[in-house]
Design a protein around this nucleic acid. Structure first.
Lengths: 262, 262
DNA sequence: CGAGGTCTTGAAGACGATCAACAAACGTGG
DNA sequence: CCACGTTTGTTGATCGTCTTCAAGACCTCG
């Protein structure tokens, strides 16, 4: 079942390489600096707000619905997802998170989580105590606006998913999702020549798009047979950007990738 | 067509009653005070940030995709919607806005609008120059957090719409939408005894839910025949809350209506 | 009173869901 | 390193929800 999750003991604990930690923090900075200039003070303030690192195995929960967090979680490596489960066990994923994304920055102000967050792959994260983040909002108005901005971009992505889910046929919907993921991964340097690690299962895609697994499988094959993508061994390559983005009606404006004073 | 809009001269210009203006500002305060305490200074600061009022007729655009706003718009009375149009003219509405909602607070930081905003009814609004809002972010950290919070709640609503659209059958989807609207209207005092003004057309509902008009019509009739709602003369009454919310799996937690320090 | 917008109904068809079964890939322990 | 079990991917057949097309009734407002 889509929501059955193995919680297994960490027989082979993941090493928190300091390299992973640095790369993850760099991803956050890259994300913010794609939209505005960060001063050295702000970079330092942000870096100091982070506390310890943690690791999760694929399938583990970073946060559960109803939790009251005392820190926000920055994803350093791996991918995670926000989700809500229905009474009959069906799941809807409402967001996909990649390196450099705060998975629950909003818990700073919302307090009680209205959804869960699950690791889709093995993940490393860094915790940012709410106390430290709140101090940023008191001392660094511009940095605060950039953190606010990052949640506004999450919101813009939600809206785009609504458009894709509500009005695009399933092939175009998947095409749009892949355009978006490729674009976001490129911002944090995880795309080489239109090719990137894409460790999601078709079940994950189904839960993101509100479709059945069987149908997702057919849609993936359609994009393959049209020569738009190649996807094997957890690596995805976009073979024909112009046709893929035309099919998806993809326009990256909603990701607000312009560097300007905010 | 769903997107055809009459832009007609304002033959009978709407009066901007000061009462409408006061009621609208009160709605914003009510919305914020439902979530935290506002100091007198903060209330004054917020009130002073507002400048002039404007009015729009149903069907007019408050904002168009691509606009670069110099002010954010607070809806005082009426209802408006965020929307995106596809190349073939089909429309997806991604948010419904009521009295007390900032329709484009995010333009303060996003700058370029990635969607349009259309008046669904005659509307009165008040403009908040970005300059003044930016000043708030420099001087009132707590008030800034509350404004941030209001955009985070918008985001939570987006997520819920994704869940409803992706995984609920259409009757449950509509039921959920009505539960949400009723709950939000109640916060700003626009519900009397489970009955409220609901001036939307079935076309509007179709564009919100990603369905065809014909199907929306049948779904509305289904809810009526189940004895869950009554809807006539632009007024909607919820006849059976328990069954409606059970059908919708509606849980208002995502609206974060608890009053606590943020 | 007329005209456009809105609501309603019926019939046919498409897209995606469900059910069922099997193949391939992966990870784990022996 | 292989054997095994679990997860993931794939395919076919049938079913159901929602769409599209078409037409007519209602209603609201200038």
């Amino acid at each position: 079942m889509a929501w059955a999750v193995r919680i297994q003991p960490m027989t082979t604990p993941l090493r928190t390489h300091s390299s992973a930690s640095e790369a993850g923090l760099a991803s956050l900075m890259a994300k913010l600096e794609a939209r505005d200039v960060l001063s050295d003070d702000e970079k330092a303030g942000l870096a100091e707000a982070g506390s310890i690192n943690k690791t999760y195995r694929a399938g583990e929960h970073l946060v559960r619905e109803g939790d009251r967090q005392k820190e926000s979680i920055l994803l350093l490596t791996g991918m995670s997802a926000r989700y809500n489960d229905l009474e009959d066990g069906r799941r809807q994923i409402t967001a996909l998170q990649i390196a450099g994304d705060f998975v629950d920055l909003h818990s700073l102000l919302l307090h009680k989580m209205d959804h869960g967050i699950v690791a889709l792959t093995d993940c490393t994260v860094r915790l940012f105590p709410h106390e430290a983040l709140r101090a940023i909002t008191e001392r660094f108005p511009h940095l605060t606006r950039l953190l606010w901005l990052s949640t506004l971009i999450d919101s813009a992505i939600h809206r785009r998913w609504l458009v894709a889910m509500g009005r695009l046929p399933s092939t175009a919907h998947l095409a749009h999702l892949l355009c978006e993921v490729a674009t976001r991964l490129r911002v944090v340097g995880l795309v080489e020549a239109d090719s990137f690690d894409f460790p999601l299962t078709q079940t994950n895609l189904a839960d993101m798009m509100g479709l059945s697994i069987v149908h997702v499988n057919r849609v993936v094959q359609e994009l393959r047979s049209m020569g738009l993508i190649a996807w094997a061994q957890r690596r995805l390559t976009i073979l024909d950007w112009p046709r893929l983005r035309a099919l998806a009606e993809f326009n990256p404006d909603y990701l607000h990738l312009e560097r300007e004073p905010r």
